[in-house]
Design a protein around this nucleic acid. Sequence first.
DNA 1: AAATAAAAATGAACTGGTTTAGGAAATAAG
DNA 2: CTTATTTCCTAAACCAGTTCATTTTTATTT
Lengths: 195, 195
Amino acid sequence: MKDLLPVIDYISRYVDLTDDEKNHLAGFLKITKVKKRQFIVQPGFVCQHKSYVVKGAFRGYLVDNEGKEHTLSFAIEDWWISDYSSLIYQEPATLFVEALEDSILIQIAYEDEQRFLAEIPKLEKFERIITQRSLAFQQKRLLSNFTKTAEERYDEFMSKYAAIAKRVPQYALASYLGFSTEYLSKIRNGKTSKS
Amino acid sequence: MKDLLPVIDYISRYVDLTDDEKNHLAGFLKITKVKKRQFIVQPGFVCQHKSYVVKGAFRGYLVDNEGKEHTLSFAIEDWWISDYSSLIYQEPATLFVEALEDSILIQIAYEDEQRFLAEIPKLEKFERIITQRSLAFQQKRLLSNFTKTAEERYDEFMSKYAAIAKRVPQYALASYLGFSTEYLSKIRNGKTSKS
DNA sequence: AAATAAAAATGAACTGGTTTAGGAAATAAG
DNA sequence: CTTATTTCCTAAACCAGTTCATTTTTATTT
């Protein structure tokens, strides 16, 4: 139980749970350790869990027809990660989710979540709120992609998520921001025509 | 009450409501009529409603520093629209939401929704599910923007949402797909080097 | 139905970011 | 501590999509 506290605390930021409810919930949580470069989600397999990062770093990405990678999300301590579409529709994943470091996760299985959402309705509210926030976040990202240049997006990311930028490889960051590694290299070394 | 049935039916697709609950909910819904070119959300003002389209068409868009428009969403009959960030955080909107035709909406005010979510917990589940679906949709759109060319995105949109494409101006569609009106014109008239 | 405004088409010149192909540094593994 | 692998940098040629400027078509208003 003690090891599961980080998630329980996380959820408690959004809804008040009784000790009984916390214990009940804890029964559904599993701790998982993964090594660097290990995948917790792979295309073709249905994503079975929603994962909370206790320690470590992850990236979720897609490989397109031409073999190019496109990073959809990063996750470090206190973030969640999964292939969201695959999880909620219980259909084969399109993403890889890969550990960028040796990591520790707390996982919730899809069926278990369905069950305890029915048993502890308060948790519906938790789910609703964090999903709404993810949606708002995604919307900002989409707009940022539309309205800003590569360089502006890079600067924005660095100022908001310097901690993440430091921990992930450059090609992963470039593919998150939506441009090539080479161009990121140019930006970092100020060889981008402007300034 | 009869006029409010479309929304009640919509929500009933996701959760079972008793007649009492339906009546209670109906008390919070308001019908609004708007004329073409009228705005229901404007930057600087806090977005007060979530709107269900009974009749008509809308677009939600942002105007960037250079004065360029970027369309985030369209909505026709049986869809919802609002400035999502502004609504959930109750902060000033960044989007315009504009009627593209004379339209009829059913609206839910932010405070009312908070109240009936507390009163009818079943509705939390409804909210959770549709938010999850929006998120999955948004994620696909983001990936599509990363992985596909302008022409592929256009073809994809036409095959999925021909009904919408027919009803919205071309510049709005171009700004949704993330390229210039001129380029859309070229795509449509097959003057795009390839093919 | 004429006048006006809004939307769509067209083409030439241009540019932000890619591609390709290489070499240099850093990490990881034996 | 040496070798292999992964990551990062550089530079020139290239291209998908933009910009600008003008014309044609389609809606809207009087």
